[in-house]
Nucleic acid binder design. Structure first.
Lengths: 117, 117
DNA sequence: TCCGTGGTTCAATAGTACTGAACTTCTGAA
DNA sequence: TTCAGAAGTTCAGTACTATTGAACCACGGA
């Protein structure tokens, strides 16, 4: 297996970060990781009410990783993913916070409008 | 020609905004429009040092428009594009500001490293 | 009414993303 | 040790999205 790639934040264009977070599954995953607890990939085999195949999940993690958003470390058989938000914050202040907050706002609004139905 | 679609901000998912701004050409265009002046599309027939075909440009504007980021109005033969950032700001506070700022930081860093070469 | 300018639409092609199947790596049990 | 199982990755085929040239529409002015 090829080694995990963790680019320096300086080498990550904003576009890559926005692209990584422009997928509903990936923001959901990332928002969860940012909350602070360590996660392995299998935590996310279902996101919302969708089942995600593990090959897809693996790609999602790769994209988050290569956008400099998370750090993945092999721990035995599994993988521990932690957020790199301090680094991102240093380079692009306020960016991650605003996106995660926007995601929360949307999630709350979504739950409200679901209750109405 | 079909009428221009301007969704209500409430109907725009964050993912659409991030996706719209995850393209280098589109952020560049949007950053310019946010600065406040009105623009028609042809202003952007070259972005940076790339030539953009006008069909492509038209699609980029459509994506920005359908992400709720800009408002386009026909003025005679041309199109005036203005930013809807107050509305976006009301729904997703801090988001646009952080992204535009990140884009500036990157542009500055890019110019610096080009000078070094 | 015709031309030029500014945009859009269409359809073909190029480029990404998703996913099942096969594989690797590690752990724990027998 | 060996084997089964759990956690991920890789590959390759298919499905989706983006880009772009060509043809078109819409308006304004000569």
């Amino acid at each position: 297996m090829r080694p995990l790639l963790h680019p320096a934040i300086e080498d990550v264009p904003v576009e890559a970060i926005l692209h990584a977070l422009s997928d509903p599954v990936r923001v959901a995953i990332y928002a969860d990781i940012v909350k602070g607890s360590e996660h392995n990939c299998s935590t996310f085999l279902t996101v919302g009410d969708r089942d995600i195949p593990k090959s897809t999940l693996s790609q999602h993690f790769r994209i988050l990783r290569e956008a400099g958003l998370i750090r993945s470390e092999r721990r035995g058989a599994e993988m521990l993913n932690t957020s790199r938000c301090e680094e991102v914050e240093r380079r692009y202040p306020g960016l991650i916070g605003a996106i995660v907050k926007a995601h929360e706002i949307q999630t709350r609004a979504g739950r409200r409008s679901q209750r109405k139905r």
